[in-house]
């Protein structure tokens, strides 16, 4: 590779970041806010103290779990937009376990995790079944099921799980202490959830890379019809990938209720499901890429909270930057292939 080629590659690699920053800067100017100050708060808000860094990891965990799960469905060529709903069904099942089984933490927490996995997997399977046997595109199935899951949870919180004192929509009563994940002293971060997310990434990496099933899933993603003709049970693989993704999203739900909030609240999933789709896309659909990309998105999210505090700016600036970055990556990738073609041709 010559020097100039390397330079071109470097520029093309940095171009999406520059584009996304340009977009968000324009947006900040349009909103009448000084951009540099906003970026300063964004950076500081995510890194100034150990507590902030721990907060970034708190957000990283569910993002990494969901994005790891999405690698299964993306590998099979599926747009599993239903992650948000799968998180919520994990939450619902885990909440039921926490409220109804009176066990010590050593038994209760594993049961909540298993329950959450089952809840998420079932909701994922529902989208998969609609796709495979009903011919409903997974985007519509997943999206519709997200709305249904959210309203189901809101109903559960408002009616059967209503707190004894006052019928507000703030959430359920706090879970019994045995249902809380142990936290690091003084922080909101639980080492258990960190371990769960890291394990998920490692396991997904090896399944997709080193097993026959992973290879077959890849074949389906490349060309479902040929894979089927080659004797791969496409339907079963697709359904399993939905179930696995749902299970990991369910774990993310468990982490949210039992590690972060300690109770079930209406906005428990908080858009993590949608964000994780962006993370998976930006990671190039690789487990190794998910960890740093999810960290970046988590830092954005945590940093943005401070924009609201200090500058009265809506924290959705983080989403603008994140989505803008993915869009820029897509555009630059397209430009790059176009440049290559025109140079050869």
């Amino acid at each position: 590779m010559t020097y100039s080629q390397r330079l071109v590659n470097l520029l093309l690699g940095l171009a999406p970041v520059a584009l996304a920053l340009m977009l968000s800067t324009l947006v900040l100017i349009a909103a009448g806010a000084p951009p540099l100050e906003a970026y300063k708060h964004l950076l500081q808000g995510a890194s100034e103290s150990p507590a902030k860094i721990a907060d970034v990891l708190v957000v990283w965990v569910p993002l990494a779990l969901c994005s790891a799960g999405l690698l299964f469905t993306f590998t099979a060529g599926l747009w599993n937009i239903g992650v948000e709903g799968q998180i919520i069904f994990g939450v619902i099942f885990a909440t039921w376990v926490a409220r109804n089984l009176y066990l010590p933490a050593t038994l209760l927490i594993p049961l909540m995790i298993v329950g959450g996995m089952i809840g998420g997997a079932l909701w994922g399977l529902l989208a998969g079944t609609l796709k495979v046997y009903g011919g409903v595109h997974e985007i519509f199935a997943g999206l519709g099921l997200n709305f249904i899951a959210i309203t189901t949870n809101i109903w559960l919180i408002a009616k059967p799980w209503r707190p004894d004192l006052g019928a507000t929509m703030q959430g359920t009563d706090p879970f019994p202490a045995a249902a809380w994940l142990p936290r690091l002293a003084g922080l909101r971060l639980s080492p258990v959830s960190l371990l769960l997310a890291t394990m998920a990434l490692v396991v997904v990496f090896f399944i997709l890379r080193g097993t026959l099933w992973g290879l077959q899933l890849k074949a389906i993603g490349k060309n479902a019809r040929s894979a089927y003709l080659l004797g791969i049970a496409t339907n079963r693989h697709v359904l399993l990938s939905f179930a696995l993704c749902g299970a990991l999203a369910g774990v993310a739900g468990v982490v949210q209720v039992s590690g972060v909030w300690g109770r079930n609240i209406p906005q428990i999933s908080g858009g993590i499901g949608y964000l994780s789709l962006l993370v998976a896309m930006l990671s190039g659909f690789r487990a190794l890429g998910v960890a740093p990309v999810a960290l970046f998105f988590a830092a954005l999210g945590v940093g943005a909270a401070r924009l609201h505090l200090r500058m009265q700016l809506d924290p959705s600036l983080a989403g603008v930057l994140g989505a803008g970055l993915v869009l820029s990556v897509l555009l630059v990738a397209g430009l790059r292939t176009r440049l290559l073609i025109s140079r050869e041709g």
Binding site: V27, W79, I81, I139, Y274, L277, L278, M281, S316, L317, G319, V320, A323, G324, V326, L327, L330, L331, A333, G334, L335, T337, R338
Partner: peptide, 19 residues
């Protein structure tokens, strides 16, 4: 640019809502 319409459309959905 021959990018996937679904991918671009989905990202724009989120971007539009956040903006």
């Amino acid at each position: 640019l021959h990018q996937d319409q679904v991918a671009v459309g989905f990202v724009l959905t989120l971007l539009g809502a956040e903006l």
